[in-house]
Structures are given as C-alpha cells and as structure tokens.
C-alpha cells in the first residue's frame, strides 16, 4: 500500500512536467540567468531540443555501458551514421525524407551488427579500444570526403528544399522542438521496456557476472550483440533528429571526443539508471552551451589570469567536474539523489 501511495504524487509530477514540456512553445515567460531569452523564443527552444537529443543519446549509451557493462569508445560512429546517411540521401541524392529514413534505418541495423560481431570477440578494456579504432576509421572516412559525399571538414548542409516545409526555418523551431521531445519520450519508453524485458535482464546479469550467465546455459555473445545493435540503432535515431535540428552534418560528431562527451554525460547523471543518463545528457549539453557564454562574461574579465584561463574553457570545467565526480561521487547525480 505504501508503495502505491508514494507513486501517485510522482505520477502527477511526471504528467505535469510532460504537460509543461509539450506546452513550452506557448509559454511566453523568462527565467533570468537560466535562459537568455523567453521560453518560447526559437533560441531557447532550439537549446532545449538539443538537450533532449543528447538526453536520449546518453540513454542509448547507458544501455550499453550502464546496463550491459560494455564500455564502448565508438558510440559516436552510430550517432554519426544516423546524421550522415540521412544527410547524404537528402542532399546528395535528393531522396524524400521517408526514403532517406528507411535507408538510414537499414544501415543503422547492419553496420552495428557487422562491427559489433567483430568487436565483441574481445571484452573489457580491449573492447573499448577496438570500438575506438572502428569509430576512428569512420571519422577518417567522413573527413576524406569519398566521392564528394560527406563534404569532409566542411560538413554537409541540408538545402531548404531537402526537408518538408514544416521542419524548415526559424519560425518552425517549435515543430523541431516537438520532434526532439517525441524522440526523447520514445527512446525513454523503448529503453524502459527493453531493460525490463527478458533480454534486458540478461544484459544486467552479464554486467554483474558474465561467467555465471554462461554457466546458466545462455550465450552472452548474442545478448551483448543485441544490446550493441539496439543501442546503436537508437543512437542513429538521435543522429537523425540532431541533423534536423542543426540543418546539416558536421564531422565533429564522428570524433572520439564526441564519444568521450557521451561517457561524461552518463557518468555525470549516474551509470545504470535511465533517468540519470537523460538528466546527465541534458545538463551536459546545457552547461556546454552556457559555459561558452560564461567565458565571455564581464565578471570573468576582472579575475587574474590564473583563474580566468581555466574558467573560460568549457571543456576544462567539464573535465575537472568529471574527474571529481568519478573520485568522490561514483554514482553520479543519480547516486547522490539515492543517498539523500
């Protein structure tokens, strides 16, 4: 009974939060210090939408790292697969959005299936290094601009006619915001369902003790491959939404630093909890955006250079924060909340 009673207010809170998030484009209010313009301004909506995409992306990484215990350093590759496959189909081959999405879905299943089958022959830290190597190969490929497809360092901008009209332009930012919100809700629902499904339970068993799973007569390799493909496919979906939001692809998303950022997000929020990962992704993206603003803030200019230099580097602050979290709060924000 107690459990039920405590759940009711939580459900109300969740529904309320969801309602506010959905209604955000109509809320003309300002939160000084948090957002630089009103809540329904395109700038704020775009920032929030990016936060949602990274929240969902962090969740997909958590499925792999937090729930199955697979430390991959190549998750950026699958996000980039979503970004670049869709971008190439749309702007180079002038496919319609639906055809491009079909192609992206196919590639996003086959690529992790093939690469995962190879990478999962190793385990532990060697697995991390092999996934890193494959992601690096992907990054090199994008940078080399094969057949003029990827645009190399320049990236690949989507033309105005590449997308359906409701998804184009600053006046339609609210539509993209809803797409990002829907993506996050969908990913969360799939994530929740999958970690509570029988294979999801086996994933968590593998994380705890792989040898024992094997002794029980299950083949860990298959379950790990399933986790790898599911999480990569969802990451590609995040890539598609990111592409729509940014209106183009940039090679930054293929780099190892991008995967490391994902790792920071998940550890920040709490490894092995769905909402923790989402929160970590949202906070990371928000900080990354706002710390750049902090770097130019007048308050900083008065400080001696010993203090000003580190504080004006967002990555330094995030990196140092990350080290402190790992050393002192291994559970991340989720762990802190649980302890409190």
């Amino acid at each position: 009974m107690n459990v039920r009673r405590s759940r009711a207010p939580r459900a109300v809170a969740v529904v309320g939060l969801a309602g506010v998030l959905v209604a955000m484009p109509w809320i003309h209010a300002t939160i000084p210090g948090v957002f630089s313009s009103s809540l329904n301004s395109p700038g704020t909506l775009n920032l929030l939408a990016l936060c949602f995409v990274f929240g969902g992306l962090a969740l997909t990484y958590d499925l792999l790292f937090g729930f199955t215990g697979l430390l991959s350093f190549g998750h950026a590759l699958y996000f980039a697969t979503g970004v670049y496959t869709t971008a190439i189909a749309l702007s180079r081959w002038h496919w319609t959005l639906w055809h491009a999405l079909l192609l992206t879905a196919a590639v996003s299943v086959l690529l992790p299936l093939a690469l995962g089958a190879i990478c999962l022959r190793t385990r532990g830290i060697p697995f991390a290094m092999v996934t890193l190597a494959f992601a690096q190969a992907g990054s090199i490929l994008v940078m080399q601009n094969p057949f003029g497809l990827t645009g190399g360092e320049e990236g690949l901008a989507l033309g105005a006619d590449a997308l359906p009209a409701p998804l184009v332009g600053v006046v339609n930012t609210h539509n993209l915001y809803w797409v990002a919100l829907a993506f996050l809700a969908f990913t969360y629902a799939v994530g929740w369902w999958v970690v509570h499904s029988p294979p999801g339970r086996v994933w968590q068993a593998i994380r705890e003790n792989e040898g024992r799973v094997e002794v029980l007569g299950l083949n860990p390799y298959r379950y790990k491959l399933l986790a790898f493909v599911v999480s990569s496919l969802l990451a590609s979906a995040a890539g598609v939404v990111y592409l729509l939001l940014q209106g183009g692809a940039n090679p930054e998303v293929t780099t190892a630093s991008f995967t490391l950022a994902l790792l920071v997000m998940v550890v920040l929020g709490g490894v092995g909890t769905l909402w923790g990962a989402v929160l970590g992704g949202i906070i990371y993206q928000y900080l990354d955006f706002r710390l750049v603003a902090l770097a130019g803030a007048p308050a900083l200019q008065g400080l001696p250079s010993v203090l000003r230099l580190p504080l004006s580097e967002p990555l330094f602050i995030l990196g140092a924060l990350f080290v402190a979290l790992v050393l002192f709060f291994p559970g991340g924000l989720g762990g802190v909340a649980k302890r409190a």
Binding site: V264, L309, F316, L318, V326
Partner: peptide
C-alpha cells in the same frame, strides 16, 4: 581509472 584519465585528458588539453 579509465574514466579519470578520460577526464584528465579533456581538462588538460582544454587548459
């Protein structure tokens, strides 16, 4: 241990 070296790498290069 891997994670702290990742954090250090990010922070040091940024610095």
């Amino acid at each position: 241990q891997v994670l702290v070296t990742v954090g250090l790498a990010l922070a040091a290069v940024a610095l």
